[in-house]
Structures are given as structure tokens and as C-alpha cells.
């Protein structure tokens, strides 16, 4: 018997065929003894399985079985609460980090500035050959120029050394 016919027979048994297809299968069954025998086998097997009720029971006591479930549920709840707390801390952290960094830069710049007497603008060499500061005392503005080493020939050479060309 061809596979598609076997599948059709099974689909007939399972009620998965349209009315037209089911009628065609009935006509085929009337003429084919092998198909009838196969249908009997499939029907018997299905009937046996349908009547099957597993008697499997949990061997653990009610309390013991439940205790693991309860622990997991309570554990999950704690994780959710902890996650909420962390996200609040994260938000504060996100605000504090840039503000703190900006403050640190400002303090560092202020400390690096040489104190001059009198009121007015002034340039200062911050002790570094490639850093200059300009301070306007009236507006309280400080500008810092940094001459990055990457622009130097030496730095480019060092950079080339790190690449495997």
C-alpha cells in the first residue's frame, strides 16, 4: 500500500479529512481488504491508548513537593524586587557619573591654574609643554588647550609599531 494512502487512512480515522475525502476513503475501503485490516489495527491501537490512564503519582510528600515550588516562586519574586532596586540605582548612577567626572575635571583645571594677582585675563603654562590655559576672571571662564601627542610624528611612529602591516 502506498504511503499517501496509508496517511489518508489514518487521517480518516482521526477525522482530519473533508467530507468528500472521507467518502472517497470509504469507497476505497469497501474494495480493499488490506486497507480494512490496517484500519482495524489502527482503530484497536487508538482505542487502547484512549482508555489508558496513567497511574503515575508523585512519590514526594505534598509538603516536600510544594516546598521546592514555593522556594522558586519566592526566589523569583526577590529577583524581581532586586532588579527594580538595581534599576533605580542605575538611573542615579547614570546621572552621578558624568556630573562627578565634570566636577573632577573642573577641580583639576582650577588647581592647575597659577594664581595671579589683579583682575584681568591671563595665559598660563600649566607646567606641561603641550597644555595651555586661558582664564578670564570677569566671566570666570577657563579654556584649556591640549596638544595631543597623536599629532606628533613620534606618536605616529609608535602607532605604526603596534600594527601588524
Amino acid at each position: 500500500m502506498k504511503e499517501d494512502l496509508q496517511m489518508k487512512l489514518q487521517a480518516y480515522l482521526d477525522g482530519e479529512l473533508s467530507a468528500g475525502e472521507a467518502k472517497a476513503v470509504l469507497g476505497w475501503l469497501a474494495q480493499d481488504a488490506a486497507a480494512r485490516n490496517l484500519l482495524v489495527e489502527l482503530t484497536n491501537t487508538r482505542a487502547a491508548l484512549l482508555s489508558h490512564e496513567s497511574e503515575m503519582k508523585v512519590s514526594d510528600s505534598r509538603e516536600f513537593y510544594w516546598s521546592k515550588i514555593r522556594r522558586q516562586i519566592e526566589g523569583e519574586d526577590k529577583i524581581v524586587i532586586a532588579t527594580k532596586r538595581i534599576s533605580l540605582m542605575d538611573r542615579i548612577h547614570r546621572l552621578l557619573v558624568p556630573a562627578g567626572a565634570a566636577a573632577a575635571v573642573f577641580v583639576a583645571v582650577m588647581l592647575a591654574l597659577p594664581r595671579t594677582n589683579g583682575v584681568g585675563d591671563g595665559f598660563a603654562d600649566a607646567g606641561d609643554a603641550v597644555a595651555f590655559t586661558y582664564h578670564n576672571y570677569d566671566s570666570g571662564t577657563t579654556l584649556v588647550w591640549l596638544d595631543y601627542p597623536a599629532e606628533n610624528d613620534l606618536s605616529e611612529m609608535e602607532l605604526d609599531d603596534t600594527l601588524d602591516l
Binding site: S54, E55, M56, V58, S59, W66, I69
Partner: peptide, 30 residues
């Protein structure tokens, strides 16, 4: 308590292993 046997039995039917079936049935309840 009412339905644990049925849920466990279904897990056992699929897994064929008592310990796994217990664990999976408990996970299902969670």
C-alpha cells in the same frame, strides 16, 4: 496538591525519567 499527579504523569510519559519528570512538573507549577 489537586493536580500534581496528572502534571507529573504527563511529564513522565514524555521524559520516561522520574527525577526529570518531578523537576519539570515543579518548574511547570512555577
Amino acid at each position: 496538591a489537586r493536580h500534581r499527579d496528572k502534571i507529573y504523569a504527563r511529564a513522565y510519559m514524555m521524559m520516561r525519567n522520574e527525577e526529570e519528570a518531578i523537576d519539570l512538573s515543579q518548574e511547570a507549577w512555577v
